[in-house]
């Protein structure tokens, strides 16, 4: 049961891995929860009840974690160097730790950010063509409204990263897990995505015509008001995925839904039912 408790906390704290003050909070909380659980068990509660009561005693932890993380970010922020509006073409930032840095409106074409920890940094309005972000930690980064053509994101960490309205032509996302990432209002038609997992990703208003999402996994993703003609979700896994049209009265979105290939895909009942209601071709879909 202690394992179950620490599992639960691991999930809650996952986005903040590596923030020392947050790791301390997690350890303190875990020993408190273990003690409470032991006491409830000693009072004769069964495993499930004791676990539930223990979890309930935590309260709104996300907010506290955020506060603690913000506090330590503000300490780290002391050493901030502003890179805004600089010409840094072809620079080597490989492996650096640069939290909450500001790279706004900079020329960063061809720069190497591989393996760098760029948590919370902003690249708004920059030229980041052909840059290398392989293995970089881009948690909470703002990569919106920038030129990311031909840049590479192999095994990058993308948590709450905002990539909306950016140019992603020729951008490569390989073995990437997108968690709560915003990809809205992007044109992904010439973007390369291989073996990706999309968890809570927002594709709203994006152009995904002819996109190949074969074999990808989508959990809690939203494809509302998206252009999806001829997109392919072959052998993909879809759980709790939302497809909604702009106007209930237009048939355009529904016609587009019918052109999507879902052959061999696996999906939960809710997603299946919603797509079925829109007359999508689900003849070769497995409901899980």
């Amino acid at each position: 049961m202690n394992e179950k408790l620490s599992h639960y906390l691991n999930d809650v704290f996952a986005p903040y891995d590596g923030v020392k003050s947050v790791a301390d909070l997690k350890a303190d909380l875990l020993s408190d929860l273990q003690e409470r659980y032991r006491e409830l068990k000693a009072e004769g509660k069964d495993d499930e009840t004791a676990f539930q009561m223990t979890i309930d005693s935590i309260g709104d932890i996300e907010e506290t974690v955020q506060e603690v993380a913000d506090l330590s970010h503000s300490l780290e922020r002391r050493a901030v160097i502003h890179f805004s509006a600089s010409d840094l073409q072809g620079s080597d930032f490989a492996g650096v730790i640069a939290h909450k840095r500001n790279f706004k409106a900079s020329a960063l074409r061809g720069s190497d950010f591989s393996g760098a920890d760029l948590t919370g940094s902003a690249f708004v309005g920059s030229d980041v063509r052909e840059a290398n972000f392989d293995g970089a930690n881009l948690t909470d980064c703002k990569l919106s409204i920038i030129d990311l053509r031909d840049s590479s994101f192999r095994q990058s960490i993308l948590i709450r990263t905002n990539i909306s309205k950016s140019d992603l032509t020729g951008t490569k996302f390989i073995d990437v897990r997108f968690t709560d990432v915003t990809l809205s209002m992007t044109d992904l038609r010439k973007t390369v995505m291989e073996n990706c997992v999309f968890n809570g990703v927002d594709f709203n208003y994006s152009d995904l015509r002819g996109m190949c999402f074969d074999g990808h996994t989508f959990i809690d993703a939203t494809f509302d008001k998206v252009a999806l003609n001829d997109a392919s979700f072959k052998d993909a896994t879809l759980k709790n995925v939302s497809f909604r049209a702009t106007h209930v009265l237009t048939n355009k979105y529904y016609r587009a839904i019918k052109t999507i290939c879902f052959d061999g895909a696996m999906m939960d009942k809710l997603t299946y039912a919603a797509l079925k209601g829109m007359k999508a071709d689900l003849s070769k879909v497995t409901v899980i």
Partner: peptide, 8 residues
């Protein structure tokens, strides 16, 4: 007092 409130 919830744990979260206390630690905050």
């Amino acid at each position: 007092l919830k744990e979260a409130t206390m630690y905050s």
